[in-house]
């Protein structure tokens, strides 16, 4: 081992690691998409106190919030094939690992988004729902046209936070065999023994990604607020 830190190696490895960023982005976008849908469904179920289902949702949310993400990841990725096998599926391991990851992350983030959306929906003035009902809208229309658009606007900062946390959680998915930046860095490190440089690269990539998300959140907030500001 020569130098303690090889700046050259760090620069040289950067493009290789960066080329794996698509996995990270894909997992984040796909799971966040399903998580928002799931979160809204859970939030509405709980707010409308739909019999039995709201209890199930409450238990679900507390399970998600009460167990570490890594445990949930292992439960689904290693545990579910066993269950599928029992129910007669030939070779559940042949399902690509990334599909399991989509599932876990959607379920995980969905639990958190449920609480974000529940808070935002409850924060929308009750009169909005009443006005929608008074003109004869169905419950579904009232939510999709009036209540949810307003709830989402209030939820933007919190949802932005959630995207950032999803993004960072993807650093764990290499544990179940999905090849992403982390896995690549691990492999490269086992040859070069230069972990420091590689993980600095990864930290830089994550910082940049999170910065972009924050920027996006801010812009989204600004352009939805525009509608509400006083201009004449």
């Amino acid at each position: 081992m020569g130098t303690i830190f090889s700046f050259e190696y760090m620069i040289k490895s950067f493009p290789t690691l960066l080329s794996m960023v698509d996995v990270t982005i894909l997992v984040t976008v796909v799971s966040e998409f399903f998580a928002i849908i799931l979160g809204c469904i859970i939030a509405l179920t709980r707010i409308n106190a739909i019999r039995l289902l709201d209890k199930v949702c409450a238990v679900y949310v507390s399970f998600i919030r009460g167990t570490p993400f890594l445990v949930q990841l292992y439960l689904i990725c290693f545990g579910m094939p066993q269950v599928l096998n029992y129910f007669g599926m030939e070779n559940p391991r042949s399902i690509p690992g990334i599909l399991y990851v989509f599932l876990v992350m959607s379920l995980h983030e969905g639990g958190y988004i449920a609480e974000i959306m529940r808070g935002s929906i409850l924060a929308v003035d009750k009169g909005q729902m009443e006005a929608a009902k008074s003109i004869g809208m169905t419950g579904y229309s009232a939510y999709t046209r009036v209540v949810l658009p307003q709830a989402f606007r209030m939820a933007i900062p919190a949802l932005g936070n959630n995207v950032v946390s999803t993004l960072k959680s993807t650093a764990l998915i290499f544990n179940v065999g999905v090849v992403d930046m982390m896995r690549r860095a691990e492999l490269m490190g086992s040859f070069s023994y230069r972990h420091l440089e590689l993980y600095i690269d990864i930290a830089v990539i994550y910082i940049c990604l999170c910065f972009l998300v924050q920027l996006g959140t801010m812009m989204l907030e600004r352009c939805t607020r525009m509608k509400n500001s006083t201009v004449s």
């Binding site: 009169g127 009443e130 006005a131 046209r145």
Partner: peptide, 20 residues
């Protein structure tokens, strides 16, 4: 209920215009 609501309309104390 929907039928009644579709044949009536309400003007509220707090206006309740759709804010969005």
């Amino acid at each position: 209920i929907l039928e009644v609501r579709r044949n009536t309309a309400m003007v509220f104390q707090n206006y309740n215009l759709f804010a969005n």
